[in-house]
Design a binder for these strands. Structure first.
Lengths: 201, 201
DNA sequence: CCTAAGTTGAACAGTAGTGTTCGAGTTATT
DNA sequence: AATAACTCGAACACTACTGTTCAACTTAGG
């Protein structure tokens, strides 16, 4: 053994590297549109032959896995650049504005991942992202800004759900893309308000 | 021509009728669990041979179509028995309590329908149900009970989204089935409350 | 009891995907 | 310029589905 061949292959020709990048790009786009997109379609979209693709990603699972890994890493990075300190309500608005479209795209990928990969892997990979949101909402609850008559985990799920709802509405042309972030944040904040703060009619 | 042979076939043996019923039942259940369930699986679940199933439903589309038609009719009937008059907030609670699980199940079937049937047919069939909800929410808006700073169509989508969210949470074991209706209604009502009714902290 | 209606598995053709192999051609790198 | 790395299409084996045909069998109903 001259060199330890670990995960990031050392020697790879430039064109191979370019092709791998093209495949991952094409896969991200294709799978976002159709989670059942075939390897053949993805290869064609990447502008390379099917065999070449298999040369870099031995199985469909390998490809999907890597696409998910990248999308997740990108999302994680985007999330870390958002300031989640201060008033949880303001922070939530910033969070939504900065990440709703990312989450929406990922949602389409998720179904692709779910039927190509073991469910455990998928869930485990997402836990990192969920944690940020959960932390923010939990803080809002303990500060009395968000309601406590419903479990925080439910509030997290509802937020997630509303984001995907907005994505669908935008895709269907019923909501303008510029309005989405505001709709989401306004709706979620309203849903999270403690019942005591609502004046009875 | 002795008799006009219209849609509901007249002469059919009792066992055939029974089998058809068994197939539709099995299909509803199987497709709710997995929208990609094969004809073979459904036939086995119904306790009959695959060929027999094809005898009654020439194509997968025919079967899915009929399953959807029935589920929709059942949902419509259930909806009509709910009193949607009076305070829109109370009406919404009744609506959710009486129909959330129905909607949740249908959601799983919907994806099966969407990839076996032309999209137009599917959407058209659902319009009837949406109308009831839309009417209720629109009324709430015009009576000043629900917010008007967001379009009613958005509120309808959000409600729908929250119902499916609850269904997922129940399926995942994070929310108890008995709590679901209350979670949904409480969250939705809070989200629909006009901003003016919320006291600033 | 008779028969038409219904059921059945086996076998078939057709489609569409995954993943592999091969041999010939191309290109990056030294 | 030499060579190892890479690409490519064609063809292959395999799996899993849909839908069809057939001939034997069972059963409902008059």
């Amino acid at each position: 053994m001259t060199t330890h061949e670990t995960s990031p292959r050392l020697k790879r020709r430039a064109d191979a590297e370019r092709n791998i990048e093209a495949v991952l790009d094409a896969a991200r786009i294709s799978l976002s549109r159709d989670p059942d997109a075939s390897i053949g379609e993805i290869a064609k979209a990447a502008g390379i032959g099917r065999v070449t693709l298999y040369g870099h990603f031995p199985t469909r699972a390998d490809l999907v896995s890597e696409v998910m890994r990248r999308a997740l890493a990108q999302a994680e990075q985007a999330l870390e650049q958002i300031d989640l300190a201060g008033d949880p309500r303001e922070a939530l608005r910033r969070l939504v504005a900065g990440s709703w479209s990312l989450t929406a795209d990922a949602g389409a990928l998720l179904t692709a991942a779910e039927q190509a990969l073991p469910a455990e892997d998928v869930h485990a990979a997402h836990d990192g992202l969920f944690a940020h949101v959960t932390t923010l909402i939990t803080r809002g609850c303990s500060e009395g800004v968000f309601r406590t008559d419903l479990p925080p985990s439910w509030l997290v799920s509802v937020l997630h759900s509303i984001v995907h709802c907005a994505a669908s509405e935008v895709a269907a042309g019923r909501v303008r893309k510029e309005d989405a972030a505001n709709y989401i944040a306004t709706t979620a904040l309203s849903a999270f308000t403690p019942p005591a703060a609502i004046s009875r009619a």
